[in-house]
Amino acid sequence: MANSKNERHVISVIVMNESSVLARVTSLFAGRGYNIETLTVAPIPQSDMSHITIATNGSAKVMEQITKQLHKLIPVYKVIEHEEMVEKEMVLVKFPIAENLSDISALCSAYNGGIVNVGPEMVITMVSDEPTRIKHFIEATQRYNPSEVVRGGVVAIER
């Protein structure tokens, strides 16, 4: 079956910004056995809604169920299964100060980022880019002995 293949999908869930709404969404995923790869949430400006972005994976059938089950939650206003989207993720990486800072800076520039903080023992870089490029960036940083990597999760907007 063509639609039984597990594929990565990004969905946006627009919800009433009220207490326990995030718990409703995540416990639905847990209870029905759906995966969450990343999840981000923030209020939508000038509204009483919040925008939740979830990167998940599943077959077309599972995606359909996820969308419909989310819709059933009372505080859920809209569910968007992204098809044509701009998708970005942010990552913070900490390096020892002794590493080659000009190499690190050049690497970050190549991924639309740079050094955002310098301390006596370490530097912190920030990059925001498409999730696959973030993955590549993290791989490329390995030779500079990163001491900590924090990924931000995906945000997406339909084109």
Partner: peptide, 16 residues
């Protein structure tokens, strides 16, 4: 109570 009953109610409220 709202945490426990979330998967077995259509909706629930904790009055604040």
């Amino acid at each position: 109570a709202v945490g426990i009953s979330r998967p077995c109610t259509k909706h629930n409220f904790l009055v604040r």
